[in-house]
Design a protein around this nucleic acid. Structure first.
Length: 846
RNA sequence: GCCGGAGUGGCGGAAUGGCAGACGCCAGGGACUUAAAAUCCCUUGUCCCAAUUGGGACGUGCCGGUUCGAGUCCGGCCUCCGGCACCA
């Protein structure tokens, strides 16, 4: 497919004017070192790490839809830098990678190009893997996993069975997105805006019986657990809280005249005396069985037809609150009042019970509906002095207040009123406290070929059975399969796959024809990394206990409410089953920013602004590209990629390169301690400044890694090289120590060049087994400091004083400074002294 | 509409409430060179005065506030990006 166009690459070298030096500014030793690392197994993590010395850092794995792009490049070089630094700090580092290899695009490629999805996927993986290896990412490739291969999806299926056995996987009829033109089910994101992503036709709802995971059973734990995730960004936690959407309230049973119950969910039981109508969703199942009087039948049916034809977007966009009176009366159980039952399209079928009690006085939507359809408004909560006259009020009055017009409950305030009503309905048996969630059970079946088969068997005699664990994996059939979507799984039309013998009665039975959502595969991949070749169990408990939790999980924020909830859910489930000892999978989550083009546009093939990491590395060398990416912006923010940024980095690296080689040259073959401490009090001025700068740089790099601000980390080393180069003023020993330290500070980010420098300086076999430099605290304090002098908060000059000078000494220096003295006339009201930094004199001019 | 994040020179971006613009790019000037490339050095927020060395005013999206001192904290807006979107 997209092989590297070698002939073209030559043109990228040198100047545009036809200069003929086809070389990067600095030689690229990446191939040499990648080979050595491989030979010495440098990045192979131990099976069991030393206690207290483990570090599990993990980027989100890749969907292999093509080759590695700049976004991947950034993601993986970031975890690479962390992994390498931790290794130098002496940790047992686990830095794994894998492939999220099932999914729709492979099937689409199969249809378009006549390739088998597996062929397409595996060839993409091979290409991407080669690119990652060229970038020199320190992955432990012996742990590589591919979710579409049987040795992985066997355990995805096994997990399905475990969920099923615990009653957490179940089947029910549900609505799915359906495109009648393409004759297929669509994923939610493929039906964005209610329109099919391929043909543009509007998407309809279709009811199919599907497999669901009961993630709602974990809703409270998933929500409350968020509070323990101190290392996660607030933004992700906020998104997850909203997604889970817990509402506390009550379910209250209204009744039809014939006695049939119509339960509603409300967060405001204290407004129940203000109910003036009941509204039910056009899609609520109950609608079909309502005893609609003959006179209303035609109107009701017409409204239902109208609603069914309308897309969700249109419905949301419309200004009116549409509805139809069913003619059915409902009894309010708290006071026996009769109220009309309406069908209203602002009521969601999927939330609560699909009906609600209409309280126009205290809910804006109900208010608008009542106004539009001439329904009465009855205030039952007094909130401050808000207008509550039904004839004049222009909006609902929400919020807490005092109950009025509410019989025995009058006078109760806020939560007390809510509690009292709930207690009453529970006592009377007409309702109960209830908590409702926005989160819904997770629909995991897909009518697709390219996924892990659902390991279930349908037998006419025995019902639904799990495939015996000894028969796993249920392999995807390979032969001649028609992938064209027909609205049901392609597997349903493969007789040799679908027909099986019932494991219980031995009679004829059918496999489940569906495959699983790929989020199933990605919910547990971090566990398989720990024990990737285990063929007896998904992973060994002891290994999980030793390695978990993930210390650093890096990925884009796009997965905040999908993957990142599912993998927390799996973790909780597996803990309950005794497989894990942790409650949460990852202590730190970091969201890196996206990579855009220099104009701030997303890179995409259709825009034609895609930059290839391979081309860049070919033209400039691997490490310059890595460093340019780091230098462009802090890791958490988006990067505006521009080749122009390469120049500065290449100059910088050449400078370091020259410094190291010169140091070696003047040093002959002298051996030296790269962490040698110098006594600053005995050093000549130039040397002392260099030594201080060196250790100040180490301090800054530590801090910058802590907050993943590698741009300032690189800037710090740039400042250092500016101070120490060319070096002739420094002793040979100092030059060597500076060179060795710089190599190590840059090693996590520019690993190949750093290795080369380390070798030139006479060390080996690898810089990554040498200790990360530590700060010599005695080097940092300086003899004199420059104090900024402010008068009335405005900068008026600077004085240089001994570092240990007290306030009065600083003041004397200020008063004797010719430039500052003119500003000092007046009455001194106040002085603020920040030791070592600044003095501010507050003066009223005389 | 609600919830996040961001807004600083020509550009990417620095700055525990304490000298705004580190570091780099671009631009301009100079050195080296027959010349160019490469390399090195200097200048580089805006405006005003001095017209040399200096000095001053303004300046971190806008308006207020707290503080001796605010890019940073507080209140109220504006714009951009992302997410959720009738959740009873």
């Amino acid at each position: 497919m997209a092989g590297a166009p070698l002939a073209m690459d030559t043109l990228r070298f040198g100047s545009v004017e036809g200069d003929s030096s086809p070389k990067p500014r600095i030689p690229d030793p990446s191939a040499k070192w990648q080979k050595r690392w491989e030979q010495m197994g440098l990045f192979r993590a131990p099976d069991m790490p030393r206690a207290g010395k483990k570090y599990f850092v993990m980027p989100m794995f890749a969907y292999p839809s093509g080759d590695i792009h700049m976004g991947h490049f950034r993601n993986y070089t970031l975890t690479d830098a962390i992994a390498r630094k931790k290794k130098m700090e002496g940790y047992d580092v686990l830095h794994p990678i894998g492939w999220d290899a099932f999914g729709l695009p492979a099937e689409q490629a199969a249809i378009n190009r006549g390739l088998h999805p597996e062929e397409w996927t595996l060839s993409n993986i091979a290409q991407s893997k080669a690119t990652l290896q060229k970038i020199g990412i320190s992955f432990d490739w012996s742990r590589e996993i591919t979710t579409c291969l049987p040795d992985y999806y066997k355990w995805t299926q096994w997990l399905f069975v475990q969920f099923y056995k615990q009653g957490l996987a179940y089947r029910k009829p549900g609505e799915v997105n359906w495109c009648a033109h393409c004759n297929t089910v669509l994923a939610n994101e493929q039906a964005a805006g209610g329109v099919c992503w391929r043909c543009g036709n509007s998407v309809a709802k279709k009811t199919l019986t599907q497999w669901y995971f009961k993630i709602t059973a974990c809703a409270d734990r998933l929500l409350d657990g968020i509070d323990t995730l101190n290392g996660w960004p607030e933004s992700v936690k906020t998104l997850q809280r909203g997604w889970i959407g817990r509402s506390v309230g009550a379910q209250i049973d209204f009744r039809l005249e014939d006695g049939a119950k119509i339960p509603v969910f409300t967060t405001r039981p204290d407004t129940i005396y203000g109910v003036t109508f009941m509204a039910i969703s056009p899609e609520a199942p109950l609608v079909k069985s309502l005893p609609v009087p003959a006179a209303r039948r035609a109107d009701v049916d017409q409204f239902l037809r109208l609603s069914a034809a309308q897309s969700a977007v249109d419905r949301l966009a419309q200004a009116e609150r549409r509805g139809v009176d069913t003619g059915v009366q409902v009894v309010n159980p708290i006071n026996g009042e009769y109220i009309p039952l309406w069908i209203a399209d602002y009521v969601l079928a999927g939330y609560g019970t699909g009906c609600l009690m209409g309280v126009p006085a205290h809910d804006q939507r109900d208010f608008e509906f009542a106004k539009q359809h001439g329904l009465p408004i009855k205030p039952v909560i007094r909130v401050g002095d808000r207008d509550q006259n039904p004839d004049t009020m222009t909006e609902a009055v929400p919020g807490e207040g005092t109950m009025i017009n509410s019989g025995r409950f009058d006078g109760l305030v806020g939560q007390a009123g809510i509690d009292a009503v709930i207690a009453y309905v529970e006592k009377e048996g007409i309702g109960r406290a209830q908590t409702q969630y926005h989160l819904m059970d997770w629909l995991i079946s897909r009518q697709r070929y390219w996924g892990a088969p659902i390991p279930m068997i349908h037998c006419a005699q025995c019902g639904i059975l799990t495939v015996p664990e000894s028969d796993l994996p249920v392999l995807l059939p390979k032969g001649d399969i028609d992938f064209l979507p027909k609205g049901r799984s392609p597997l349903a039309d493969v007789p040799e796959y679908i027909n099986v013998t019932c494991p219980q009665c031995g009679g004829k039975a059918q496999r489940d024809p569906d495959t699983m959502d790929t989020f199933m595969c990605s919910s547990w991949y971090f566990l398989r990394y720990l024990d990737p070749h285990n063929d007896r169990e998904p992973f060994a408990r002891a290994k999980a206990q030793a390695w978990l939790p993930i210390d650093y999980y890096m990925g884009g924020i796009t997965h905040a409410t999908g993957h990142l909830i599912y993998f927390r859910f799996f973790t909780k489930f597996l803990k309950d089953q005794g497989w894990l000892t942790v409650d949460e999978p990852a202590t730190v989550l970091f969201n890196h920013g996206m990579v855009m083009d220099s104009a701030g546009q997303v890179m995409s093939k259709s825009r034609g602004n895609v930059v290839s990491p391979l081309d860049l590395m070919q033209a400039h060398g691997v490490d310059p590209v890595r460093l340019t990416m780091f230098f462009a912006s802090p890791a958490g923010r988006e990067v505006l990629w521009s080749d122009a940024g390469m120049v500065g980095i290449e100059r910088f690296l050449s400078k370091v390169d020259r410094f190291v080689r010169d140091a070696r040259t003047v040093g002959g073959d002298r051996r030296f301690d790269p962490d040698r401490r110098f006594d600053v009090s005995t050093l000549p001025d130039v040397e002392r400044e260099a030594y201080r700068k060196l250790h100040d740089t180490i301090r800054r790099c530590d801090r910058d890694f802590e907050i993943m601000q590698l741009n300032t980390c690189i800037a710090a080393v740039m400042e250092l090289i500016a101070v120490v180069a060319p070096g002739d003023q420094l002793s040979v020993e100092m030059r060597l120590v500076c060179a060795a330290t710089m190599a190590r500070l840059l090693a996590p980010m520019a690993p190949h060049l750093a290795e080369e420098w380390w070798e030139i300086l006479g060390f080996g076999p690898t810089i990554f087994r040498s200790p990360w430099p530590t700060v010599d605290e005695s080097a940092l304090p300086t003899d004199t400091v420059t104090i900024a002098v402010q008068i009335n908060g405005r900068l008026r000059g600077q004085v240089t004083v001994p570092a240990l000078a007290d306030q009065s000494a600083v003041l004397r220096a200020v008063e004797s400074d010719d430039k500052i003295r003119p500003h000092l006339s007046g009455v001194r009201l106040k002085q603020i002294y920040v030791p070592g930094r600044l003095i501010n004199l507050v003066i009223r001019p005389s």
